[in-house]
């Protein structure tokens, strides 16, 4: 099953490689991984999307907790949570497609953040599946490049991951 795991870790050189190394050494999947410092500059927050049987997910949680630099771990999938991903898509925008792409972006609540005479860059945020739908909705041959951040997740209500 797909799981989204959130963790706080020391904002130190090498901490990221310990997490990445753990996943590769033990053969766990990483679908996506995002990380950035938090409002507390000594901490980084990471969101990992992974998949595996319940046993594997249990081990992943335990192994993450075992890393000295990992301060707190929460399996967001165990409760109510939100996830969001950012995608930038550069599309070919010429002739009648210029209008059509603006309309499609609007439908998906995207924004056109850069315009050249032949291209647009469209910014979309939301659940990964919504971003997928957008890519399916437009003509594949128009897509010049895409870049996605991978999911960031946060628990809802009083599910809080903080020190």
């Amino acid at each position: 099953m797909r799981h989204i795991i959130s963790l706080l870790m020391e904002n130190e050189a090498g901490a990221l490689s310990r997490v990445a190394g753990l996943f590769s050494a033990r053969g766990y999947n990483i679908e996506s991984l995002t990380v950035a410092p938090t409002e507390d500059a000594t901490l980084s927050r990471m969101t990992i999307v992974t998949s595996g049987s319940d046993d594997v997910i249990e081990q992943i949680n335990k192994q993450l907790n075992k890393l000295i630099e990992v301060v707190a771990v929460m399996d967001l999938s165990e409760g109510e949570h939100l996830e969001c991903e950012l995608m930038l898509v550069k599309v070919q925008a010429v002739g009648e497609m210029r209008e059509e792409l603006v309309r499609m972006a609007e439908i998906f609540h995207g924004r056109i953040i850069d315009v050249s005479d032949k291209t647009y860059i469209i910014e979309l945020t939301g659940a990964g599946s919504r971003l997928d739908s957008f890519l399916q909705a437009i003509d594949r041959s128009l897509i010049l490049e895409t870049v996605r951040t991978g999911a960031s997740g946060i628990g809802q209500g009083d599910r809080i991951l903080k020190l």
Binding site: D55, E58, Q59, K62, Q63, N65, K66
Partner: peptide, 8 residues
Amino acid sequence: IDPSSISK
């Protein structure tokens, strides 16, 4: 002492 050893 190591939770990750349990049910591994």
